[in-house]
Design a binder for these strands. Structure first.
Length: 469
RNA sequence: UCCGGCAUAGCUCAGUCGGUAGAGCAAGCGGCUGUUAACCGCUCGGUCGCAGGUUCGAGUCCUGCUGCCGGAGCCA
């Protein structure tokens, strides 16, 4: 039998239910106001859209005195009635209730943490199981969902294949950051080899295993068979990072395209980001108006500008020249060969270009081994997409597809070729120029919503010292 | 990890020169009103983060610890 999704508040407020119709709405109480005219106004939300619907509960209802007049924020109710034009201001339609069932009352109203008032984000992180009931977190959640759907839609429509790269990796070839160990060994009684080292041969996988820090190396294998691929899944970094833009567990999107160079990679990044932001502007106008009013003035205009104007593209060397000529003192001096600091990225995006910037062709010394060496011998075909207010949102590169060049670079860096056997095979058998990038999904959500802290755009943030819930 | 800041009622905060605790909101009761961040009155609500120290006396000054927040580094 077909699933009946029922009627949502969004259906009603969007006009998909005619005035005069009888509807049943299910959700949670946001506020209740009483009128001695013999009725109560209950704002009901069900998460389907930003606005709640006003339910008018007449005092004549049998459970009015006993239950409805005592409803407080957070109680779960089922309201049935007639959809009518509102007699009051502030909403066009409302539900004239013929019955309101209290499904889940609030056990102790004084103890219920979510009050109809502004809360600090710090406090709401301590009640992360209840914060999705607030305006802000409802809006963030819907925007996050719209972005996720838009990611898959963008790639699907362009013939990309979604590759499910592993979460657990026993490959010691990642090198993108500190990793979380995965083990079933008894920590209190570790098996030892004769030389005293831990005997990982007795561990679950017969060798050391970790949570992935990136699906890139794995997804390259499918790229060199299916041409256009991407990953979208959780990744893990055990870095002791305590900032507003780092999480120990976050979601990353990593497309990889074959027969493509760095310029194509940058085109993809720009086109992709723009399509995501357009989707949010098209689908979540209600939530974006809230972010505009209460979170960050100007977010909507910023997104619109982002979605319609070309990204500035700069060579790293050119970026360095701009910074050297900048009419401003930096804490960290810039010169060719140094990595760009946060203050430099901010100057480029917020002052010099006043918009997103793609910085390309970095010195090879500050970039990963797999990035393709340019003909100048000192730079690699790497790019970062920098966004005003958030910094690096995308990092990508053309990959080194030439076996001898890749092996030489690995030797230079002291990386053991045996550990990368399957990765090097890709360069032995049918190698092609290919490129890709990684987009931190939460950074994207934070940028779109204007939320200042990445811990507030993921349901249950994991950071050093904190894995509650 | 480094630097800085903060910790007082369920929440957001005030608390002067060191003299034993305050407001708004929430919650409860009442009043008023087609209300909408409602309004008015009353009530309930505190081991001032923890442990020491100085002092006749510490929310206030000092030391240590813990937690949180911001910035930096690492990166997405």
């Amino acid at each position: 039998m077909a699933y009946d999704p029922g009627t949502s508040v969004a259906d009603v407020l969007a006009g998909r239910v005619p005035v005069g119709a009888t509807v049943t709405l299910r959700g949670w109480v946001r506020t209740r106001r009483d009128s001695k005219a013999g009725l109560s106004f209950i704002h009901l939300h069900d998460g389907s859209c930003f606005d709640p619907i006003q339910v008018v509960a007449p005092a004549a209802l049998p459970n009015y005195e006993g239950e409805l007049r005592h409803l407080t924020s957070g109680a779960a109710i089922v309201a049935t009635g007639t959809l009518v034009q509102s007699q009051g201001k502030g909403q066009s339609v409302e539900l004239q209730a013929s019955g309101v069932e209290v499904v889940g009352p609030i056990a102790d109203p004084e103890a219920y943490p979510i009050q109809p008032k502004p809360h600090s984000y710090e406090f709401l992180r301590e009640v992360a199981h209840l914060r999705p009931r607030t305006n802000t977190f409802g809006a963030v959640t819907r925007v996050r969902n719209t972005l996720a759907q838009a990611v898959h839609r963008y790639f699907h429509e362009r013939g990309f294949c979604w590759i499910h790269t592993p979460i657990i990796t026993a490959s010691d070839a990642e090198g993108a950051g500190a990793m979380f160990r995965v083990s079933t060994l008894d920590l209190a009684n570790l098996p030892r080899r004769p030389d005293g080292h831990i005997d990982f041969a007795q561990d679950f996988f017969g060798k050391e295993a970790f949570l992935t820090v990136s699906g890139q190396l794995n997804v390259e294998t499918y790229c060199l068979a299916l041409s256009k691929v991407y990953t979208f899944g959780p990744t893990f970094r055990a870095e002791n990072s305590n900032t507003t833009r780092h999480l120990a567990e976050f979601w990353m999107i990593e497309p990889e395209i074959a027969f493509a160079d760095l310029a194509a990679d940058a085109d993809l990044a720009e086109d992709f980001l723009k399509s995501l932001f357009k989707a949010v502007l098209d689908e979540r106008g209600d939530d974006m108006r809230f972010f505009e009013d209460r979170v960050e003035k100007g977010v909507i205009a910023r997104l619109e500008k982002f979605a319609t104007s070309a990204f500035t593209r700069l060579d790293y060397a050119e970026a360095v020249r701009i910074l050297e000529k900048a009419d401003r003192k930096f804490e960290f001096p810039v010169s060719f060969g140094t990595d760009l600091q946060t203050e430099h990225e901010r100057y480029l995006t917020e002052v010099h270009c006043q918009g997103p910037v793609v910085v390309m062709n970095y010195p090879k010394e500050i970039k990963a081994f797999y990035m393709r060496q340019n003909d100048d011998g000192r730079t690699v075909a790497a790019m970062d997409v920098l966004a005003p207010g958030i910094g690096e949102i995308i990092g990508g590169s053309q990959r080194e597809e030439r076996l001898s060049v890749l092996e030489a670079r690995m030797d230079e860096l002291g990386l053991a070729r045996e550990a990368y056997g399957w990765y090097l095979d890709l360069r032995r058998y049918g190698t092609v120029p290919h490129a890709g990038f990684g987009l931190g999904f939460e950074r994207c959500v934070a940028y779109v919503t204007g939320m200042a802290n990445i811990r507030d755009v993921i349901p249950f943030p994991r950071t050093p010292g904190n894995a509650a819930f």
